[in-house]
């Protein structure tokens, strides 16, 4: 509570408020603009870049600067590529609404068409990672065994053995991956959002990335042994052993010891 109050007097507060106002404007724009966009072809082109630039200037330029060259509070986006935009905006991390240890996934603020336009604009600023095709992220074409080997060496220390998420320093965390789309997983590996390192194609090949996606997409469903208890490991198992196991058994002991009427 106190930290919230402090934050309200933060010198960044006006910026955050401004960002909020801009997001609201952008949202309104999106609602108004959507019908006229419905029949437009989704393929990126010059028109997309132009619309993307308008969207960018209305929604992103406050922090990232005109022409996405970066400001004191936000990095330059020249050369981050379409993949970074598609990930950050497509998972709702951008635009950021509150400052905190890290940008968090939220309800997405833009339509997929608008995201493509934004991505097209940012991609036009400098060469960077492209959005993967549907085939590159198709889990059915990946090998989960290779995926597991790559995942546990490169990803499991932050995201946990099955991608259930984990803690980083100073309030940052690695999120759960079970509901992340294959495209976003691929883009995250390629672009290294926020604390996450970059895993370029020389480090984890495109084929291995698809294998990783195949492995992650196997997780979070039915478990062989029953409820997964959050897939958090021995701590949650211990908690359940005390609460359910010992709880039931002490309940039974109380029943045995009670006088029957």
């Amino acid at each position: 509570m106190k930290s919230l109050a402090v934050r309200r007097h933060d010198r960044r507060a006006p910026i955050v408020l401004l960002a909020l106002a801009l997001v609201a404007t952008g949202g309104l724009y999106a609602v108004l603009a959507a019908p006229s966009r419905a029949d437009a072809a989704p393929l990126p082109g010059q028109a997309d870049t132009t619309t993307g630039q308008k969207l960018f200037e209305a929604n992103c330029a406050t922090c990232h600067g005109m022409g996405a060259v970066g400001t004191a509070i936000a990095p330059s986006l020249v050369g981050v590529g379409a993949a970074a935009v598609d990930f950050q905006v497509g998972t709702g991390r951008m635009p950021m609404t509150v400052s905190g240890p890290q940008a968090q996934a939220k309800p997405v603020q833009f339509t997929q068409t608008q995201i493509s336009q934004l991505a097209a604009y940012v991609a036009s600023l400098g060469p960077g990672p492209q959005i993967p095709t549907a085939d590159m992220v198709d889990p059915s074409k990946g090998d989960p065994a290779t995926g597991m080997a790559v995942f546990r060496t490169n990803c499991a220390m932050c995201h946990n053995a099955v991608g259930a998420g984990g803690s980083l320093t100073e309030g940052k965390f690695a999120p759960n991956l079970w509901h992340t789309t294959p495209t976003h997983i691929y883009e995250a590996m390629l672009t290294g959002p926020q604390s996450m390192p970059v895993f370029n194609d020389a480090n984890i090949t495109p084929q291995e990335k698809r294998d990783v996606i195949a492995f992650i997409k196997q997780q979070g469903g039915t478990q062989p042994g029953g409820l997964d208890l959050g897939a958090l490991g021995p701590v949650s198992e211990g908690l359940w052993a005390w609460v359910v196991g010992l709880g039931l058994l002490i309940g039974a002991a109380v029943w045995i010891g009670a006088k029957s009427s």
Partner: peptide, 21 residues
């Protein structure tokens, strides 16, 4: 009803990897 110690999720021992939690 409750899964415990799913070793298949952790994989065979190898000194390099470690998982969160």
């Amino acid at each position: 009803t409750m899964q415990i110690n799913p070793v298949w999720n952790y994989g065979p021992y190898d000194p390099a990897p470690v998982s969160a939690g």
